[in-house]
């Protein structure tokens, strides 16, 4: 009686969770396997599994200029954006934590870019960095004749223009996450530090910052996932140009499965994009495993 009832209940639970099961298995096992498999074929417009191409697509990938530029860009962009967002986010969070007046107003202004589409972000900054009518021209009209602020116009500096837009859009989130973390830090620590005469900035850097490990990791992972996916911002702000100066892996893949009609080369790129994520997941597992092992050893 009980066992049959339980089985019936479980069946309902499986039905309820069927969307999750379908997506998990269909997309994240079968889909990923399908993409990786395609990277070893000669598919152009449609998937074709009749000929095995070996590593030919990967060899081609790593000799395709736009892919090489993409990989270089994603590292440069990722390090700069994540670094700046973390630093700026932490600074803003600590300053906001100093019991400022109008905290809600500051937070609203700092975080609103995150509510908008990356297309909007890209278009606004494209306009502000316009070499003819943007900020540069305004500065020159004000009398700063030598003013230069049109990074998007030159292949050498375009990526830094994209970085500015990325920091503008993303540093508010880091601030919000770290501020929430700071609010969770025990009040007594501030009192203790004050009693001991430790300067406030040292308390933040040497006491609060290490206690924010969890919040920092969260902010980092969120940023990293966003960087690997970056597509919309590039489309809006430069379209990958000038030339191929701001190409990104995500755009490379989409271009190759749509307009460039070379699915297998695109899938080789997609497979490469999966690797950093797999490394992150593996590190996460390893840390968990070690923690569990340490806990077990502590017990006996």
């Amino acid at each position: 009686m009980t066992s049959s009832r339980k089985r019936f209940a479980n069946l309902n639970a499986v039905i309820g969770a069927s969307p999750m099961i379908a997506v998990a298995v269909g997309l994240y096992i079968f889909g990923i396997a399908y993409s990786i498999a395609l990277s070893f074929t000669n598919s152009r417009l449609l998937p074709k599994f009749d000929s095995f191409a070996g590593l030919a697509n990967y060899e081609r990938l790593w000799s395709t200029p736009s892919w090489l530029v993409s990989v270089h860009n994603i590292w440069l962009f990722g390090l700069l954006v994540i670094g700046l967002n973390m630093a700026l986010g932490f600074l803003m969070a600590t300053f906001m934590d100093r019991r400022v007046r109008q905290e809600d107003t500051f937070r609203t202004i700092i975080l609103y870019p995150y509510a908008m589409s990356l297309i909007v972000t890209g278009l606004v900054w494209q306009w502000m960095m316009d070499p003819g009518l943007g900020i540069q021209e305004s500065l020159r009209n004000w009398g700063f004749e030598g003013a230069a602020f049109a990074p998007l116009a030159s292949p050498d500096t375009a990526i830094f223009g994209v970085v500015i837009a990325g920091v503008w859009q993303g540093s508010g989130v880091t601030m919000a996450i770290l501020l929430a973390g700071l609010r969770g830090v025990d009040e007594d620590i501030w009192k203790a530090a004050r009693v001991d005469g430790i300067p406030i900035w040292r308390t933040y850097v040497f006491i609060a910052l290490p206690m924010l490990r969890g919040a920092l990791a969260t902010a980092f992972v969120l940023q990293a996932v966003g960087v690997v996916r970056i597509y919309d911002l590039i489309i809006a702000i430069t379209g990958g140009g000038p030339g191929i100066a701001t190409e990104m892996p995500a755009k490379f893949v989409i271009d190759h499965i749509t307009s460039r009609i070379n699915v297998s080369l695109g899938m080789a790129g997609a497979t490469m994009m999966l690797i950093p994520i797999l490394v992150l997941v593996a590190i996460n597992w390893y840390v968990d495993w070690r923690r569990k092992r340490a806990a077990l050893q502590a017990i006996g």
Partner: peptide, 26 residues
């Protein structure tokens, strides 16, 4: 139910997978 955590773990892993990896099969 049995396997629930496995599917959930897989789904959460999916949150980190770049869209480009699964967009073509979709």
């Amino acid at each position: 139910f049995r396997g629930a955590n496995f599917f959930f773990g897989l789904l959460i892993f999916g949150a980190f997978v770049p869209y480009q990896v699964v967009i073509f099969p979709l």
